[in-house]
Simulated assay, not measured.
Amino acid sequence: MTHRSFEPGGYRYAPGVFQYSAGVAAMPGYEIVRVRFRDPVPLAEGFARAQALMAAEGRPTTAFCSCELRSPAPFTQEGFDAFNALYVGTLERWGIVRDGENPVARANVCPEVDEPAEPSLHAFGFTVEARSGLPTFVVAGGAEAPEGKGAYRDHIVRLGDVGPSALREKARFVLAEMERRMGVLGFGWRDATATQVYTVHDLHPFLADEIIRRGAARHGLTWHYHRPPVVDLEFEMDCRGLAQERVA
């Protein structure tokens, strides 16, 4: 797989599925800035706030390149498909999704505790004119099932098994997918400034030899006590390499 360019946004992306790309990287002359809200903001309001923040920087809506969502609970496959159709509609109105091609990287996970009342925006990324001179990228969230093959449940690694060996196998699959996505964009773990894990299961039995030893936690590891967005998925990760992160 090769990356593609989204010129109106100033970034390139690794093609994924219709609801999101596998990852994004700033094009020459640009860098990606991440903005995290202090509390998740209901999706429509979150998009409006993101648009206002981008406009204040003199950036168009097409500069929107990544987002991190929070949902009340894991979706059924049918519910997930319906949610994605609504979410993608905003990106179409913003001039980002064209002819079914979506360049935006995304993570959508479900807090196990203190969950939002409705799908909400936790953080987003957008491109600005380069200031740091460093290459920047965001890899989309991925769980233990290949994407683009139909229903997740039909392809989940060790479906229904959350024992130590199964979780290790799930983690290996997800880590390999993170590496594949970074590789498409020309990056590796040495370029990542942050790595996030989303699971409600114990990751300590394989933390050292599967995650740390391969370089996936060079700047630490942020563990969110969250579930992936679809029922029966148990382990998700994403990562990024950025020079600027803000709280709004």
Score class of each variant (00 low, 15 high):
188 G>M: 06
132 S>M: 03
155 H>L: 05
123 A>L: 10
194 A>W: 00
144 E>T: 08
114 D>Q: 11
86 L>K: 09
163 G>A: 08
182 M>W: 01
206 F>S: 06
118 E>P: 05
74 P>W: 02
90 T>V: 14
190 R>W: 00
129 E>R: 15
157 V>H: 07
164 P>R: 07
196 Q>W: 02
151 A>S: 13
172 R>E: 11
139 V>N: 06
175 L>S: 04
133 G>P: 07
104 V>E: 08
144 E>Q: 15
101 E>N: 13
83 F>D: 09
161 D>N: 14
68 E>S: 13
177 E>V: 12
175 L>Y: 00
130 A>D: 15
203 L>C: 14
153 R>P: 00
163 G>W: 02
94 W>N: 04
190 R>T: 14
174 V>Y: 03
76 T>K: 05
194 A>D: 06
142 G>L: 12
112 E>C: 13
69 L>P: 03
115 E>I: 00
83 F>T: 06
145 A>W: 02
192 A>H: 07
136 T>A: 10
90 T>L: 13
138 V>Q: 09
80 F>S: 14
127 T>H: 08
208 A>F: 05
199 T>M: 05
111 P>Q: 06
179 E>T: 11
115 E>V: 12
189 W>N: 10
180 R>G: 07
177 E>K: 15
183 G>H: 07
161 D>C: 11
160 G>W: 01
204 H>P: 00
145 A>E: 02
207 L>G: 05
137 F>N: 04
99 D>H: 09
178 M>E: 12
137 F>P: 05
185 L>V: 11
136 T>L: 05
163 G>L: 06
138 V>L: 04
148 G>K: 11
152 Y>A: 13
201 H>R: 12
151 A>G: 03
112 E>G: 11
196 Q>H: 15
138 V>Y: 12
142 G>T: 15
77 Q>N: 13
146 P>W: 02
195 T>E: 02
119 P>A: 11
208 A>L: 12
177 E>Y: 12
142 G>A: 15
187 F>I: 07
176 A>I: 01
102 N>C: 11
85 A>P: 00
119 P>F: 02
154 D>E: 14
143 A>H: 08
122 H>I: 01
195 T>L: 08
202 D>C: 11
166 A>S: 12
85 A>L: 12
96 I>D: 09
191 D>M: 11
119 P>C: 10
138 V>W: 08
184 V>H: 03
82 A>P: 00
179 E>P: 04
83 F>G: 10
115 E>D: 08
127 T>P: 09
165 S>V: 13
69 L>E: 04
